[in-house]
Design a protein around this nucleic acid. Structure first.
Lengths: 130, 130
DNA sequence: AACAAAATAGTAATGATTACTAATTTAATC
DNA sequence: GATTAAATTAGTAATCATTACTATTTTGTT
């Protein structure tokens, strides 16, 4: 039950810390494969889930049906470009007041929300003008 | 290219109009199977997508990884109970000002957002107290 | 009724994710 | 450093939601 060290898990964590593109499990797998050519995709999935449960990384849903992962666990929202499918961080404060608004005519207990913004990223918006 | 009538498509639409539980494709399939025992799951998926494209129903993402469908296309938000997995409508106005907030320090173009609230529904919140 | 286009049922394929198992690695003890 | 039990892995098979494919049926028009 105790947690043992594993170089694969370290590599996964280091990979996520070192990039800001919010990769999917498969993207992490491809990346780590270069250092550990025979790492298993299952190992990547298992450790991504484990690290998520430990609160060391976070799993994010951007609406494309594939789970993305973020090494930055500080609370922040994400943006999903519907054209190039990139996932970007947004610099904005939490808008938890929307939880209160949602609670007004609701008899359950609102505990949180899943929020992801969509549109065109800077590059795709620029390309749209040509 | 023209759209022909199909009793299966009508049944799917009628099914969605007649229930408020935001069913998944499989739930719609199970329901319609009672009237049309040999309807195909593929037919359900194809028509759900078609009706969504036509704007007659909407596909909603609640964070459980499975697409849910709603016969009510008026703009409104949803609530997902993390305990019983029910999906409920919320009576609250759109909070489109969060798009403006998100735009402030962002150089792309925010066009919309995916927002779903989570927590305990009325029944599960009550059950929690015992 | 006859015909072409559209839709279907049934099945196979896909893609993301999870489960399983034998072999390897870790960490603690001697 | 060898021993050992628990944890972890690689590799593969299985699962689940969804999409693709194809021969057959249904629809709408002449």
């Amino acid at each position: 039950m105790a947690l043992n060290y594993s170089r694969q898990r370290e590599a996964i964590k280091t990979c996520l810390m070192g990039r800001k593109d919010h990769p999917t499990a498969d993207m992490v797998y491809m990346s780590i494969k270069q250092e550990y050519p025979n790492i298993s995709l299952g190992t990547v999935y298992r450790n991504l889930q484990l690290l998520t449960d430990l609160g060391q990384i976070q799993k994010i849903k951007v609406g494309d049906g594939i789970d993305h992962y973020d090494g930055d666990v500080s609370p922040h929202y994400h943006f999903y470009c519907t054209k190039c499918h990139s996932v970007l961080d947004l610099e904005m404060d939490r808008v938890d007041m929307i939880n209160d608004i949602a609670s007004r005519n609701f008899d359950g207990q609102i505990q949180g929300h899943i929020l992801c913004f969509t549109g065109l990223c800077g590059e795709c918006a620029k390309a749209e003008l040509s």
